[in-house]
Amino acid sequence: MGNSIKSAQFLIDARLSRAAAGSAEECFDLGVAYSCGTGGVVIDLIEAHKWFNLAALRGSEQGQSMRAEIAEEMTAREIAEAQRQARAIIATTQLRAA
């Protein structure tokens, strides 16, 4: 069982790297993982909203839809935190690209 947890964490880490670099599909996949608890992650709606938001900003219509759907289950503070985290990733990736 330890190997499956390590394997799942490796896949999440790889997705995080690709998503932060600009892949809308990877952002969406991370949003799904965090909203459903798949891929070895714990359900975290703030993380899910953040990744769906980034997917939406990168052109994903599914990201827009899922972001709106999970926002209905979140408090205003949770949404604000997810947005703050998304902005931080955008700022970081823009700095690396410059």
Rank of each mutant, 00 (worst) to 15 (best):
G2Q: 14
N3K: 13
N3F: 14
S4V: 15
S4H: 15
I5T: 13
K6N: 14
K6P: 11
S7L: 15
Q9K: 13
F10W: 09
F10N: 15
D13H: 12
A14G: 12
R15N: 11
R15E: 12
L16A: 05
L16T: 02
S17R: 09
S17P: 00
R18Q: 14
A19N: 02
A19P: 01
A20E: 08
A21T: 06
A21V: 03
G22K: 04
E25L: 08
E25T: 10
E25A: 11
E26N: 05
E26T: 03
E26M: 06
E26Q: 07
E26C: 06
E26D: 11
E26G: 01
C27A: 11
F28W: 03
F28Y: 09
F28D: 01
F28T: 00
D29G: 09
D29V: 09
L30R: 02
L30I: 06
L30V: 05
L30Q: 03
V32D: 08
A33R: 00
A33F: 02
Y34V: 02
Y34M: 05
S35C: 09
G37F: 06
T38N: 13
G39T: 07
G39A: 13
G40P: 04
V41N: 03
V42T: 13
I43F: 10
I46N: 01
I46E: 06
I46W: 00
I46H: 01
E47C: 11
E47I: 05
E47R: 15
A48R: 00
H49D: 07
K50Y: 07
K50V: 05
K50T: 05
F52R: 03
N53L: 11
A55N: 06
A55C: 09
A55W: 00
L57T: 11
L57M: 13
L57H: 14
L57I: 09
R58G: 04
R58L: 11
R58P: 00
E61D: 13
Q62H: 14
G63E: 00
G63L: 00
Q64F: 11
S65R: 15
S65Q: 14
M66C: 08
R67P: 01
R67A: 04
A68C: 11
A68L: 10
I70A: 05
I70C: 06
I70F: 04
E72L: 14
R77G: 10
R77W: 08
I79D: 02
A80N: 11
E81Q: 13
E81K: 13
A82M: 00
Q85D: 14
Q85V: 07
Q85Y: 08
A86R: 00
A86C: 05
A86E: 01
A86S: 10
A86L: 01
R87A: 12
A88V: 07
A88I: 08
A88E: 15
I89C: 07
I89H: 03
I89R: 03
I90P: 03
A98D: 13
